[in-house]
């Protein structure tokens, strides 16, 4: 179980997380939603120890995250950053192989067990026959799936994703999030993903955490959290929420649309 208690993180003197407390139970997909700059990405980076915190605590199975050695932490938590960069001439197979770094000895490399995992991972993301292809020559959707494959090849039980469907068209957004849902529901991974689109969050997440002003304002099952009242409180925006085929759909209400136009 991963949890943050009274977490305070600042950029210089500007506090971004302001006493945030949240708990992520094992398994399933949790969407982190909230307005721009509310601290969603900062929370993910803090969990990984990439951002120094000035207060509060983050624990993984009741162990403070800062006391877990980096290699051991990498075997428990994998991370997909918002922006990913790959040098030219790196092929997909090499990218996947690098993900196993925490398992390799100083002079060693991947073993048979690792190679079997890499094959499975490429199969899972639908790129099984593309191991020899340079990452930078893949299409946008394939490339995002390649980065997800790298995250999976790390073989961690918790996966943090920062806007995994950014820059993707609708088809690829759904393909990538389908994959994410499979990881959370069928493979037993705990996926925590920052998403901007509430409709995507409601379609693919089991739970939603709404973050605003550096705090987890609302948290719980998707249908209970994505409500017009909560959206008004967190986003300062009027929206209507409908149920359609067992799924929640959010649309700007007439008032909300006019308000956005005026701004």
């Amino acid at each position: 179980m991963l949890s943050a208690q009274d977490l305070v993180v600042s950029y210089g003197k500007l506090p971004v997380l302001n006493g945030l407390s949240v708990r992520f139970d094992a398994g399933g997909v949790t969407a982190l939603v909230g307005p721009n700059g509310c601290g969603k990405s900062t929370l993910l980076k803090s969990i990984l120890g990439l951002m120094p915190k000035s207060g509060g605590s983050i624990t993984l199975d009741d162990v403070p995250i800062e006391s877990i050695p980096r290699r051991k932490l990498a075997s428990r938590i994998a991370y997909l950053p918002q922006e990913n960069h790959c040098p030219d001439y790196i092929v997909l197979g090499e990218l996947i192989e690098l993900a196993g770094y925490a398992r390799y000895s100083l002079f060693g490399g991947p073993r048979a067990k690792d190679r079997a995992l890499f094959r499975d991972v490429l199969q899972t993301v639908g790129l099984a026959d593309m191991a020899h292809v340079p990452v930078n020559s893949l299409s946008g959707g394939q490339r995002q799936r390649a980065w997800i494959a790298m995250v999976l090849a790390q073989d961690a039980d918790i996966i943090l994703m920062d806007e995994p469907v950014n820059h993707l068209d609708m088809k690829y957004q759904y393909a990538v999030l389908d994959l994410v849902r499979t990881l959370g529901r069928d493979q037993g991974k705990t996926v925590i993903a920052v998403l901007h689109d509430l409709n995507l969050a409601s379609a693919f997440a089991d739970k939603v955490v709404m973050v605003s002003n550096g705090q987890a304002t609302f948290s719980g099952p998707t249908q209970e959290v994505i409500t017009p009242e909560n959206i008004r409180t967190v986003f300062d925006f009027e929206a209507d929420v409908f149920a359609r085929n067992g799924q929640i759909v959010c649309l700007p209400s007439r008032g909300g649309a006019l308000q956005a136009e005026a701004q």
């Binding site: 980076k45 990984l48 120890g49 990439l50 980096r70 290699r71 932490l73 990498a74 075997s75 938590i77 994998a78 991370y79 950053p81 922006e83 990913n84 960069h85 790959c86 040098p87 790196i90 090499e94 990218l95 690098l98 993900a99 770094y101 925490a102 390799y104 100083l106 002079f107 490399g109 790390q154 943090l160």
Partner: peptide, 22 residues
């Protein structure tokens, strides 16, 4: 000896750090 870690750093320090590189 450091070459594999250096390859990960070329992907970005956040990516490298999350993969276990100091």
């Amino acid at each position: 000896v450091l070459s594999r870690a250096l390859s990960l750093i070329a992907l970005g320090s956040e990516k490298a750090s999350s993969a276990g590189v100091n």
